[in-house]
Amino acid sequence: MGNELLIGAVAYSANAVPIWEGMRDYFRDTAEPIDFVLFSNYERQVDALFAGHIDIAWNTNVAWVRCSRRSEGEARALAMRDTDRTFQTMFVGRSGSGLSSLEQLGGKRVALGSRDSGQARILPLHYLAEAGVAGDVELVIFDSDVGKHGDTGRSDLDALRSVLDDGADVAAVGINTWHGLTAAEDDSVTGLEVVWESPRYNHCNFTALDKLDAARSDRWVDSLLQMDWNNPAHRRVLELEGLREWKSAELSGYDSLIAAMEEQGIYDEW
């Protein structure tokens, strides 16, 4: 073991190991080889980043906002997936529900995911508040994967099941879950339809603190951006991680989440 950059990631599924072994293999022949450490939750990972135990954290949007705040703005977002720039929350109801806006949700039962999930809980509450119905909906909560910031998709799926089982009228889920569900492009099959979709916002990024030499992180990002969907060895990792292309980081898409976390008083801790 030498001077590899140490990347932290949360083991949100059994595929975290093949993803990060694939990443390690890819970076082996680049200017900045890596090794990785898997955490069971994002809070532990963020602590490890600040303690200097890892150089870079593969963070959710919620973990990024916390890092940024805790570092008083010094944390750097290095790169993200193409899909992280176009993330959305989908409010999903039963097909034929007649619902088509958030304003219509007053008096309805809204199923939300885990309390640390940006897409399935924090931002949906923000959107409901913006639509003026936050105090007027009955929340049906599924805290099924706390610590993983909604990455497992478990709470999204539990919320959707509750809609099908008439335990809720609408569920708020990440667009990745919705795309997974409708992959066969046959909406009628699921018996569910989108009631309202949120504006786009940012999701994950690779986060580093100031103490990481910028020349090293630049070299690492250069190699990262060269991963190629058309190369079968890269593609497996990209597919598993849910992207086609790595992109440089773009920060304006975090504004809605920052506002939501501030409103809900969960900027620093739950």
């Binding site: 599924s13 093949p18 099908l164 879950t177 699921t190 018996g191 497996r236």
Partner: peptide, 21 residues
């Protein structure tokens, strides 16, 4: 129409299934 639970179960099952299994 196919039961919507099937699609949900599928997404959940395959997300939890290791690559190549």
């Amino acid at each position: 129409m196919v039961n919507g639970h099937l699609a949900i179960d599928l997404v959940e099952l395959m997300a939890a299934t290791p690559w190549g299994s």
